[in-house]
């Protein structure tokens, strides 16, 4: 089910609005693999509005029926709030499509790059900066 992402014009459009680092509290490369970007669908199990960075947990079921719970890191809750995302905008139980960079050691601990509700895939709820973006800090 996993597919490599091809950067589309829409992604570029959105990304360049927000050409900023995803992981402001620490370096990207120490934890995440820029070459392992995945696109998956799943069901949200938890949204953590906690410091230093928000996290969204998503159950993903593979072709064999095995369920993995992805722990996905965003940026600080304050930053997400300032951009208009509120506590009711993503809830446990909602089906989503997401893109993420996998963790270097624990693959399912990823850096969230983009997430949309399944019924509105062209209206992303969150689009993060990533290592392919201009201005992303090199560590």
């Amino acid at each position: 089910m996993r597919t490599k992402i091809k950067s589309g014009a829409f992604m570029a459009f959105i990304s360049l609005f927000f050409a900023v680092p995803l992981i402001a509290h620490h370096g990207f490369d120490t934890e995440y693999d820029a070459t392992k970007k995945v696109k998956l669908t799943g069901v949200v199990t938890k949204v953590e509005w906690l410091n230093p960075h928000m996290r969204v947990y998503i159950d993903v079921t593979d072709a064999n029926g095995t369920v993995s719970n992805w722990n996905l890191e965003l940026t600080s809750p304050n930053t997400v709030r300032r951009q208009g995302w509120g506590p009711k905008d993503l809830l446990a139980g909602e089906k989503v499509i997401f893109e993420a960079y996998a963790g270097k050691v624990i693959e399912t601990r990823g850096a969230l790059a983009k997430i949309s509700k399944a019924e509105t895939p062209d209206k992303p709820l969150f689009v993060a900066g990533g290592p392919e973006q201009p201005g992303f800090p090199k560590q």
Binding site: H25, H26, T30, E31, Y32, E48, L50, N51, P52, H53, R55, N71, E73, S76, N78, R81, R82, G103, K104, V105, I106, R109, G110, A111
Partner: peptide, 23 residues
């Protein structure tokens, strides 16, 4: 129209877990 907000860093710091190290 914006100002500083509350931030408590140690609340849920999971840095390092994905990369297999302790900060």
């Amino acid at each position: 129209d914006l100002d500083l907000m509350e931030f408590i860093c140690l609340e849920n710091n999971q840095v390092g877990a994905a990369g297999g190290y302790v900060p």
